[in-house]
Design a protein around this nucleic acid. Structure first.
Lengths: 202, 202
DNA sequence: TTGACAAGTGTCCGTTTGGACACTATAATA
DNA sequence: TATTATAGTGTCCAAACGGACACTTGTCAA
């Protein structure tokens, strides 16, 4: 294939940038990790920076592939249990998808060096899931599942702590099981605080 | 003074490591930024890595200087207003103290490369303030200012979103005013949710 | 006055880096 | 079969890097 190598370079570059940073990545090691020569890289990309920009492109596209359009919004939960289930499902993806993990790691390290990385960082760690849950919470309030409140404020209060624990898990993967439980406990506590008190089962 | 230059090197190294990363820092520029030669650095430190470790030492010490011992705990607020005031006061420090800002920036970039940086990262962004507010909330619950609840869970739910917005402010300092208002709004909302409902003055 | 010592300088070195370029092998097309 | 584009190799280079080392300067005690 024509772009097979080009794609492989990109994937490997993501790994190397994530693990060693932009400065810490050298093209020889990157190439030899693919079984080719550094010179062969220049057949596909004109410079190190062009590879970097292509990696950012890929990360942006990968994100919008999942959340980019309204029809990709998850179905609005019909109950608090469903909300919890949805949360844990999204969490499981975000904590185990290799590309997403590498993206987070890369962004944290390079957010101050590159403007596009900076914006993507805010999207990944803050505004992305907040926006989704703002929509979800608003709908759940309409349906009377959650108390009436400011949906955006609640979405922020819900997603930011989860995001903090996901980052902790990136940092200390050996604590994954424990952290997952922590997140679930937090989610339960949050939902319990803001659910409409039609019935009280807990 | 004997260690004056040594200290100046350390401060400059913190700046350079924070702005350019470990790999991106070179000793020539670091030295010339101090008005001395690279060789003079070697009079005080044996290697680049030794400078790095000294910087970590300094960050650790700076942190424990502020929060290290129980007697440095802030006074427990006597009311919800005082809690808000304390929060905004701590926030103002953490958002404007130059050394703390640089420390956060450095940690985010280097947390995956250095074990001590990793631990300090968790302390700075997660467990540090959480522990403090766990204590504060527990006391405020005893006093009947806050509803009875899990103080640790509440501390986590309170500090994690604030920490996320502080990081946002590091990333986009031009939005400081707006972000500060966001934090205050969040704090008010949080306090309003968990305050004991003796009186209701909104 | 002298001698010791810490602080700083100038210069050199081996290595690695991103990048350039001429060359080769392969496969599809005319 | 001849041609041409594509992917990859091997080699070279200037610049920058961390580090080593001999040397100079200023200071203070004996």
């Amino acid at each position: 294939m024509e772009n097979s190598t080009k794609t492989r370079i990109l994937e490997q570059a993501l790994v190397s940038f994530a693990e060693n940073g932009y400065k810490g990545t050298n093209l020889r090691d990157l190439a030899s990790g693919l079984g080719i020569t550094k010179s062969a890289l220049y057949r596909h990309y004109d410079s190190k920076e062009e590879i970097w920009n292509a990696v950012i492109d890929m990360m942006e596209e990968y994100y919008s592939m999942r959340f980019g359009s309204p029809e990709k919004m998850p179905a609005v939960p019909e109950s608090c249990d469903e909300l919890l289930a949805l949360t844990m499902k999204m969490l499981h993806f975000t904590m185990h998808d290799r590309k997403v993990i590498l993206t987070r790691r890369l962004l944290l390290a390079e957010q101050f060096r590159d403007e596009r990385a900076r914006k993507l960082t805010t999207l990944h760690f803050l505004t992305g899931t907040k926006q989704i849950f703002t929509e979800i919470f608003a709908r759940m309030m309409e349906k009377g599942i959650l108390k009436n409140d400011d949906p955006e404020m609640l979405a922020f209060a819900y997603t930011a702590p989860v995001s903090a624990l996901v980052q902790l898990c990136d940092r200390e993967p050996e604590r994954e099981a424990e952290i997952t439980l922590q997140i679930e406990a937090f989610a339960r506590h949050f939902i319990n605080t803001y659910k409409a008190k039609d019935d009280d089962n807990d």
